[in-house]
Design a protein around this nucleic acid. Sequence first.
RNA 1: UGGGGUGUCGCCAAGCGGUAAGGCACGGGACUUUGACUCCCGCAUUCGUAGGUUCGAAUCCUGCCACCCCAGCCA
Length: 582
Amino acid sequence: MQDAKTMRTNFIWDIVDTDLSNGKNGGRVQTRFPPEPNGYFHIGHCKAICINFLTAQRYDGLCNLRFDDTNPSKESEEYVRAIMEDIRWLGFEWTGGLYYASDYFPTMYELALKLIREGNAYVCDLTHEQIRATRGTLTEPGSNSPYRERSVEENLDLFQRMKAGEFADGTRVLRAKIDMSSPNMNMRDPVIYRIVHVAHHRTGDAWCIYPMYDYAHSIEDALERITHSLCSLEFENHRPLYDWVVEKCGFTQEPPRQIEFARLNMTRTIMSKRYLRQLVEGGHVAGWDDPRMPTIAGMRRRGYTPAAIRDFVDRIGMSKADSVADFGLLEHCVREDLGNTAARAMAVLRPIKVVLTNWPEGQVETLTLENHPDHPELGERQVTFGRELYIEQEDFMLDPPKKFFRLFPGGEVRLKGAYIIKCEKAIVDPQGNPIELRCTVDLDSKSGCEGAARKVKGTLHWVHAADAVPVEARLYEPLLKDENAEELGEENEAAEAAESLAPAHHDKKDFISRLNPESLSVAHGYAEPALAQANPGDRFQFLRVGYFTMDADSMPGAPVFNRTVSLKDSWSKMAGQEAAGR
RNA sequence: UGGGGUGUCGCCAAGCGGUAAGGCACGGGACUUUGACUCCCGCAUUCGUAGGUUCGAAUCCUGCCACCCCAGCCA
């Protein structure tokens, strides 16, 4: 895996370098990854995870894992567990410790009292609608709340009674007293505490007032002595408020520095939590860990490796420019990692029988194949060879086009690690489709023997019918038919809510109709015997087919494999262009 | 017509006044008992745009254009 210290730099690390050279924080670097435990992680989260943990590693600093659990109505312990599992799976450890925003509720409450005493916060009785109406607009200033000049005593009394549970949800809030005419909407007396009579997954009913993000996050960072608080671009507008809270709460240390970066978007991928949930709840996928899902759990089950995902995040770079990464780059990273590490094996997904007419009935030969062409240390394995074999249907054509290097009547191919065979005759069904091939084998052409020097155009993978293991292969394609999935990227909930009220974008509304009905196809084929001994999670390259990972759905003697990613296929690309050109 | 950001090859992205890195994709070729891998070669006279400063600008200045974010008692 990468070494954070030797990785190429980026604008964030340039800033850290500058801070360090200016002697900030005594040379100490501490970051934090602060998820709200309100859902499953997807590929988009990986970027934030990497930058936070790698920044700590690069500077011999620490990275905290902090659950930003300030909104009990959306959070749960289930997500906390899943998130920790995902982070560890990616290979990171929260060296700075594990924290929960909820552990700071008492401190946050005390600091709120301090803000009130010092005239920096007040209890506001305006309704939700009134607050919105008096906030002004993007071009007009807001107006002061009639409760803005309440006395400290009254504010203290009211806030304590809010905490005591005397008031119903939505009847009062605590607001920071800043500037209702600020051009930055976030500074127009933002709400910092609201009343929510909902049990919290960790603090239960201890609280009925909960701090808002802007207030809570600043305090969390300051309390944990975070030096660099990395977050995504949409928080850029919040930075003045972030700094305001740290200052007014009286933290005298060097303040944490918030730095924003562009979040990860990717083509052909659905990242919107709303759509992802729709897929799961609508039964369009098998669950959050369906191998088609861009969730970490889904990618894990599909067979993507942490190394590949991290390499991908590294390669897309770090900047402030809105961008959409190419899904093909992720696939490239997966192929590169697996190509180097996965053991080779042979499996025929859509079999057609081959009978070697000049091979003695009942004779079986054992052949030795390498597990990896470039890594002899991965060892060898044995496969048997006999009279009846299976090859891939698409490796035979009755009437082949030019440059078809595979099998056809009268043509010759090598069977990988075995012999050269020649197709003498194809048996076809009444519709003319080949159902069995009669071939002769060149007995002198066995791999490793003198006669093996003879060259033929194509080499095919195959399995011996006598001891082949039946396998189920699950083949995955993108969930959406079109390639415009990036428009279904993460959106904020206001947009989601507005969308559900007034579905203006028909393409989004028709999300379900855009689903690719062929995102999952199942093939039943045969594999060499060794695969019966594999374990769930084991990864292989099925020669000439693709990378596959054994699924936990496998039963003894009946393995199930997920296609992680196909092999690059210049033949089908070329053939496709030929066809299009005709 | 408020404020905050961003604009360099199809997609990412270096570059920080000295004359456009790299990756993916793409095209061509070599090699090949995986049409995989690997290996060569090609791929921005130009940096949103119009001016200006300078011997010299993607880098500095000015205007303009485009896109993103902000009016949650979400994070």
